[in-house]
């Protein structure tokens, strides 16, 4: 079962990355875009029966950091932050997973974008906070919140099929 979980997670990440670079990144709202990989990690980590989210956050984060132009392995740090927030919420808001998904998406997106802006500023990019908030961060948060529910439903269904609940006789 663990092998299937790893396989499903890897395939889902590949699909999310391809969709992200080919479609989602080309359909911005102002200058912000949704982040399917972040949403996948948030939804995956909120599942009670899934135990490999930290491992895949590291693997996925490293690979995406290698492909991305973002400096200092920021995608890796961002995705680890997403998993951390989701795991934290999973323990506290476990009775309302959809609410946890929304909160995780909001906090994780803000954290990730904050890290990106800081990293780019350190790398020498002339990015103003006001412009970053208006043009990128707020639109990205909005898009991520819109996509959070379908992503959670999808991942929930996927995990439900992988780990069917045992029915008592």
């Amino acid at each position: 079962m663990a092998l299937i979980a790893h396989l499903v997670c890897a395939l889902s990440l590949v699909v999310a990355y391809v969709l992200q670079t080919t479609i989602v990144a080309q359909t911005p709202l102002v200058n912000g875009t949704a982040d399917l990989i972040l949403l996948f990690f948030a939804a995956w980590s909120l599942q009670e029966r899934v135990y490999n989210s930290w491992l895949w956050a590291v693997i996925g984060g490293v690979l995406i950091s290698l492909f991305s132009a973002m400096p200092f392995y920021m995608p890796l740090i961002g995705y680890l932050g997403v998993v951390g927030i989701a795991k934290l919420l999973q323990r506290r808001v476990w009775q309302a997973p959809i609410l946890a998904m929304f909160i995780a998406t909001l906090l994780a997106t803000l954290l990730q974008q904050f890290l990106y802006v800081v990293a780019l500023q350190v790398a020498g990019a002339p990015i103003a906070w006001g412009q970053a908030l208006d043009a990128v961060i707020f639109p990205s948060v909005l898009l991520n919140l819109i996509f959070a529910l379908p992503m959670f439903a999808l991942v929930n269904d996927l995990v439900g099929r992988m780990y069917p609940l045992e029915v008592e006789a």
């Binding site: 990355y17 992200q20 670079t21 080919t22 990144a25 080309q26 911005p28 200058n31 912000g32 875009t33 982040d35 990989i37 995406i64 492909f67 991305s68 132009a69 973002m70 995608p75 974008q113 990106y116 802006v117 780019l120 990019a125 990015i127 970053a132 990128v136 990205s140």
Partner: peptide, 14 residues
């Protein structure tokens, strides 16, 4: 062109 950079802060194509 087969894709774009994952971060909205950067303007790159693949």
């Amino acid at each position: 062109v087969i894709g774009r950079e994952i971060s909205p802060f950067l303007q790159y194509i693949i």
